[in-house]
Amino acid sequence: MGKRVLVIEDEPNIIEAINFILSRDGWGVDTHSNGHDAVDVVLAKAPNLVILDVMLPGRSGYDILKDLRAHPQTAQLPVLMLTARGQNKDRDMAQRLGASRFMTKPFSNAEVLEALRSLVPQ
């Protein structure tokens, strides 16, 4: 296996929950909790998939996604966006910027795992 996920999220409890679920499913999990240097961290860790929160301290998830899509190394990288602001315009924004999948908090653990599996073929 050895597929790696980078979780960019600022709520410690949510990080812990996702970490537990994905690790149990066999994913290698890295976490990062602020927006400032998120793009650099993605480039450095080169994960198979990124889980990206929208409301992050320092920089919004949308801006980070835009940068990732603009960079050749990460243009095709699967990104699963999570947000607690469950309005339609947030979903539209995420799709326009090229998010691979968009999920509203709170999510079901099974749903997250299923999305990950479909985005990163085993």
Binding site: E11, N13, I14, A17, I18, F20, I21, M55, A84, R85, G86, Q87, T104, K105, P106, F107, S108, N109, A110
Partner: peptide
């Protein structure tokens, strides 16, 4: 409303995730 949604959903997310765990 967007703020309240965020503030409510964030703890909810942890609660739901750990409840399922």
């Amino acid at each position: 409303l967007s703020q309240i949604s965020h503030e409510l959903r964030t703890p909810m997310t942890s609660i739901r995730a750990f409840s399922e765990i």
